[in-house]
Design a binder for these strands. Structure first.
Length: 303
DNA sequence: ATTACTAGGGCCTCTGACAA
DNA sequence: TTGTCAGAGGCCCTAGTAAT
């Protein structure tokens, strides 16, 4: 991960084995940037759990948020900016080069021609199943209970393989277009992601988002879907649901207030959408989070 | 009384087809 | 490549019910 002022960017090792390293990162930098140029020291994958940031390469910008997996290629240069004041937090997966090449080879047989650059993309989709599995992995790694290393290895590699497969599926299906149009569409979609990430709690229409990136609603819906494989509204809903999952995990107790705060029109709609996304109701997630808290508190009381 | 969940219906968004 | 139209599907709101 990038080197930014140490007091504002902290790392906590969660797990280390010969096949995978998992770290939690927490960035407290407020809105601003782009900052000074940074260089990636190794190949790693980041799955975010909160917030958003933008990676800039020359004139290109890609938005990283909880709906994306972000890929850092060793030696790549970029600058980072933060479109919102909320900071960002996530999980870093570091996989040894030979093992990473083995995983990628199944998706891209030409990887042996460029083993130092296994990622031909910067971001890729993070599907609900992968996001959930990653969240469970972090939860269990953070818990005080002992963990089976085999389970952690398999789960971490599975998450990495899943997001890589999704990224290759998206980027491998690229069609040829005029370079100018291609760049213009990318810019608009990335700008829309940034715009959405800083407005989770607002009631937005397709016209609002399209207007923010200066295009017609119909055309914008089309290019957004083409580039993300997700309709605009579904994308925003996922941002909201993943924010909700984090807040439930950190003790949010009023579901109605949480739903309204995240821009859902009603608690009922929030519950319904949450269950469809994660297969569990918000209250059951909150219950398991509070039981965990109680276990940890009682453990602290033990002498 | 409050909180949480479910069902049903209206409306908005998405998407395929087509034209400019 | 961009914009428009129309049908289909899904989202969101309201109302009702259950649990505490």
């Amino acid at each position: 991960m990038p080197r930014r002022p140490e007091s504002l960017l902290t790392f906590s090792p969660l797990y280390d084995s010969p096949v995978v390293g998992v770290r939690d990162y927490n960035c407290h930098i407020d809105r601003g940037g782009p900052a000074a140029e940074e260089h990636s020291a190794d190949n790693h994958i980041v799955l975010m759990r909160h917030g958003t940031f933008c990676k800039h390469f020359g004139r290109r910008t890609e938005t990283a948020d909880v709906n994306q997996a972000v890929f850092f290629s060793k030696g790549s240069s970029y600058r980072v900016s933060h479109p919102a004041d909320c900071g960002d937090r996530g999980t870093v997966f570091v996989i040894p080069p030979r093992l990473l090449t083995d995983i990628v080879r199944e998706l891209d047989p030409t990887v042996d021609d460029h083993p130092d650059r296994p990622f031909p993309f910067v971001t890729g989709p993070c599907e609900p199943a992968a996001f959930w599995q990653h969240r469970e992995l972090v939860r269990r790694l953070e818990a005080v209970e002992p963990l089976e290393p085999l389970w952690a290895d398999v789960t971490a590699l599975q998450v990495a393989a899943d997001v890589l497969a999704a990224a290759f599926a998206r980027h491998g299906a690229k069609r040829r277009k005029r370079p100018g149009t291609e760049a213009d569409h990318t810019d608009r979609v990335e700008a829309a992601k940034t715009w959405l990430a800083s407005r989770l709690g607002e009631r937005l229409t397709l016209e609002d988002v399209a207007g923010a990136v200066h295009t017609s609603p119909f055309h914008f819906a089309r290019i957004f879907q083409q580039r993300t494989n997700t309709p605009v509204h579904a994308y925003l809903t996922r941002l909201r649901l993943r924010a909700a999952l984090e807040r439930l995990g950190s003790g949010a107790d009023d579901l109605t207030a949480l739903a309204l705060d995240l821009g859902f029109s009603s608690h009922s709609h929030f519950t319904d959408t949450f269950r469809r996304e994660f297969g569990r109701s918000p209250s059951s997630v909150r219950l398991s989070a509070s039981r965990r808290t109680l276990r940890e508190l009682s453990k602290n009381l033990e002498v």
